[in-house]
Design a binder for these strands. Structure first.
Length: 275
DNA sequence: ACACTGCCCTGCGAGC
DNA sequence: TGCTCGCAGGGCAGTG
């Protein structure tokens, strides 16, 4: 599942390939819903001839800024992938949309489950998105003191709170499980019961895990890949994610458990992360 | 304002 | 071997 490190990896792999390119056309493959409620002709009319000014990431969103101050907003959700391939390349498996560029290549969006979206947004929509999203966990503004202050107001389970994109933008199921394991915190602990020391550990763990995952170009679980098709190298460093009910804790050897928290499959070590 | 649930979607793997 | 069925989960709408 693409989370912050995966989206950042895709962003970096796209920089050389599409910044500065002009959009020639937009080609829908088989699923109009990929554009949300917008019609393909309308989006095409708005982006045709525009130049890609830069590519940013905000939380799990990839933002392709165009030279008219509008933005193509992409969310990969679970299985979305971006790739840059020659224009004459036949449609990829699960391809939903192609953006034809002026250098003979296409930016292709494919998505097995049709959850991902490619939206063309004006300023106000982008501002609303920005307003909905919480802090970037790798930015300095995401401090332990700020996190503690926010967690004190949240009676929900810590895992569900950390997944709340309105609080922290970019954490998903994989890295929350990994972070809580490193911090030694049970995923069902009530957020407002964490001590200052525990919040420090969670804060530190989130940053360490995310930084290492970005450095490793993300985790390939099921089928994540960057725009060149390279798998992430962080998967081998996962300690608990996806292992609940299957294997031993890599630290203490106790059997890892699997529960559901906030509707998400959750793996943790009952000995290292006691409630 | 927050917590919680169900929905979307479909390939895949487990089980029979 | 071939079938059925449940699982995977980010974001959002709806409810409490």
């Amino acid at each position: 599942m693409p989370e912050l490190p995966e989206v950042e990896t895709v962003r970096r792999s796209l920089l050389d390939k599409i910044v500065g390119r002009r959009i020639h056309a937009l080609r829908l493959t088989d699923f109009p819903g990929v554009l949300g409620a917008d019609r393909a002709e309308d989006v095409q009319a708005r982006v045709e001839g525009r130049q890609v000014a830069r590519i940013r990431r905000r939380a799990k969103y990839l933002l392709i800024d165009l030279d008219d101050d509008t933005t193509i907003v992409i969310h990969l959700r679970m299985t979305g992938k971006l790739s840059v391939v020659p224009h004459d390349e036949p449609p990829l498996r699960f391809e939903r949309l192609a953006i034809e560029l002026d250098d003979g290549f296409d930016l292709r969006f494919s998505d097995q489950r049709k959850f991902g979206r490619v939206l063309h947004s004006q300023d106000d929509e982008l501002a609303r998105l920005e307003q909905r999203l919480g802090r970037e966990p790798l930015e300095p503004e995401f401090s332990a003191a700020w996190l503690q202050e926010r967690l004190l107001r949240r009676p929900g389970k810590i895992k569900a709170v950390l997944l709340d994109q309105g609080l922290i933008g970019g954490l998903g199921n994989i890295y929350v499980d990994e972070s809580l394991f490193r911090a030694g915190i049970h995923p069902e602990r009530r957020a407002n019961t964490l001590t200052a020391d525990e919040v420090q550990r969670v804060h530190r763990a989130i940053r360490d895990v995310l930084r290492a995952a970005v450095a490793g170009q993300g985790t390939t679980f099921s089928s994540f890949a960057d725009a060149e098709g390279n798998p992430g190298r962080y998967g081998g460093r996962l300690r608990v994610y996806g292992r609940g009910g299957k294997g031993p804790c890599p630290v203490c050897g106790a059997p890892l458990e699997r529960i559901v928290v906030g509707g998400r499959g959750t793996s943790f070590c009952p000995r290292c992360q006691p409630l």
